[in-house]
Structures are given as C-alpha cells and as structure tokens.
Computed example of a mutant assay.
Amino acid sequence: MRFSTTLRNRLIAATLLGASVLTSAGVVSALPAAADTGTGSTAPAKSETVLLKGSTKASYFWDDSSGRAGDTGLPASGKPMQKGMIASPSWPLFTEGYVIYKGKKAKFFVGDRGPGVPSSSGVMIDLDAKTFADLTGGTFNSGTLGVDGNGGLGHIKVDYVITKWGDGVGKKNYPVAFSSGAWKVKDSNPATPPKAVLADAARP
C-alpha cells in the first residue's frame, strides 16, 4: 500500500521531532560518530603516537644462523628471525614503528643490528625478507633466503614512523651508520616528537 504524500511528510516530521526530543533530553544517538576523510570514506578518525618520522633506503635480510646469504648468526635481540623484525644500525633494540612503501604499510620492531657497510651509504633499515617480498610484490625463497619475482629489487626507499623507543642502548633519533658506534651508547636525549598526526591512510 502506498502512503499519500501528505501522510508520508507527516510521518517524516514526526520522526524528526521525536529525534529532537530525545537529543534534548540527553539521550545519546546510537549512530556512530564519523569523520569525512576527504576521500569519500566516513571511517572514524584515529590519532597515533609519532616519535620520529623520516625516509631512507631499505634492504632486506633473513638471519636464521644457517650461514646462507651472508647470514651472521641469530639476531642480536635473542628473538628468533621472524616477519616484522628489522635490523637497525643505531636505533635501540625493541624500538617499534612501521614503514610505508607505495601505499603499503608494514609494522616492525628492531630485533637485530645492521645494515653494516651499506648504512654508510644511506641504507638505514634492513627489513625482514618476507616483509620486503610483500611490499615489493615478490615471494620469499626459503631455499636462498632471498626475494624472487619483484624485478630484482634489492633496495627500496621507504617512509618510516617510530611509535615506541626501545629501553636499551642506541640512538633515539634519525638513524646513523653502524660504524658510528651509536648502537652501543645509551641515549638519554631522544628526538623531540613531531606534533600528533592523524593515522596514515595506508593500512597494514
């Protein structure tokens, strides 16, 4: 059965009036609050802790103590090699954050030291090989501990965000080369955090 236009308008008006009365009476709306991100999305806005932001070149590694692919032994943190672990030439072990590459976001924690010599040429992050494969569209080769099918990429430029500093020795600031020795010095003067920013549009 169709309602007449007049009756339909009256029903709409009554509904709006009821909503107004509930609001004025202090009743909270059941509709979730949302923020327009400017991209057509109405996902709730989130803030995050940002202690340091920057960009650098990243290589990859997979140290399983087998001696393959330049493997120098188990990671310095004592944790087994795993996805999400990176090596840093200067940040404290167990520092946490994420990298972004071409819109793809990957969380990490610092579990090892490195790169060594490459860090003197601006390669300041060693991603685990599985994450590197995910970011570059390749596949992890468990036989060679390398990455196949990504066009031969071995280094990529990434943006990084630090969200938590580790408690041990290491530089709590922009990364410096392994040869500087900053990785073995306690830093009591961490970088001044930038102003809080909205969570990046990239998703893990």
Score class of each variant (00 low, 15 high):
P190C: 01
L11C: 12
T163E: 06
K184F: 01
A25C: 14
S41N: 14
A133R: 00
S119P: 09
A202H: 06
K53H: 12
T23L: 15
V50A: 06
L22E: 14
V158A: 07
E96W: 01
W62R: 00
F109D: 06
A76Y: 04
D200M: 14
L198W: 11
V27Y: 10
S66I: 06
D187T: 03
D167F: 00
T15P: 03
K130H: 08
D167Q: 09
D112G: 07
P118G: 10
G73T: 00
K172I: 02
Y60M: 11
G181E: 06
T136F: 10
V147D: 08
G67T: 03
Y60E: 08
V117I: 06
D148W: 11
W91M: 10
T72N: 09
Y160L: 09
L51K: 06
P44L: 12
R113F: 10
P32R: 13
T163L: 03
P190G: 05
A199W: 06
L74H: 04
M1E: 15
S119L: 06
D64F: 01
S66T: 11
V158T: 05
Y101K: 04
G18S: 09
N141F: 00
D128T: 08
N9M: 13
A58G: 05
A196D: 14
Y98E: 10
F109S: 07
G181P: 00
A129Y: 05
A13I: 05
